[in-house]
Amino acid sequence: MEKYDVKKAHKALYSPSAKEFTVVDVPEFRHIAVDGRGDPNTAPAYAHAVEALYGVAYTLKFASKRTMDRDFVVGPLEGLWRADDPAVFATRRKEAWEWTMMISQPAWVTDGMVQAAVDAVSKKKDLPALGDVRPLTLVEGRCVQILHIGSYDDETPTLDRLHNRCLPDNGLTFNGDHHEIYLSDARRTAPAKLRTILRQPVRPR
Rank of each mutant, 00 (worst) to 15 (best):
F72Q: 00
A18D: 13
R37P: 02
W108V: 04
D25C: 09
A107I: 01
H31D: 11
F29L: 01
G36Y: 08
W81F: 09
Y54T: 13
D84R: 00
Y54G: 06
A33G: 11
A96K: 07
V26G: 05
V109M: 02
M102L: 15
K19A: 06
A87F: 06
R66W: 14
A90P: 04
D69H: 04
A83W: 06
W99Q: 11
T100R: 12
D69M: 11
S104Q: 04
P86I: 09
G55M: 13
D85C: 15
Q105G: 02
G112E: 08
D35S: 11
T91N: 06
E20Q: 15
A18I: 01
I103K: 00
K94S: 01
M101A: 11
D84C: 10
L77Y: 10
Y54I: 00
V74C: 13
A63Q: 09
R93E: 12
R70E: 15
R70M: 03
Q105F: 02
T22N: 03
K19G: 00
W108I: 00
T100N: 10
M113P: 14
D39Q: 13
V56E: 13
A63R: 09
E51S: 12
M102N: 06
A18G: 01
Y14S: 02
L80G: 03
R82H: 14
T67I: 09
R92T: 05
G38Q: 10
A107H: 04
D85E: 14
T100G: 06
V56D: 14
M101F: 07
G55L: 12
N41A: 13
G112V: 05
F29D: 01
K61S: 09
R37N: 00
S104V: 08
R37K: 12
A107Y: 00
R66T: 01
G55S: 15
A116Y: 09
K19W: 01
A52H: 13
I103Y: 02
R30N: 05
E28Q: 13
Q115N: 07
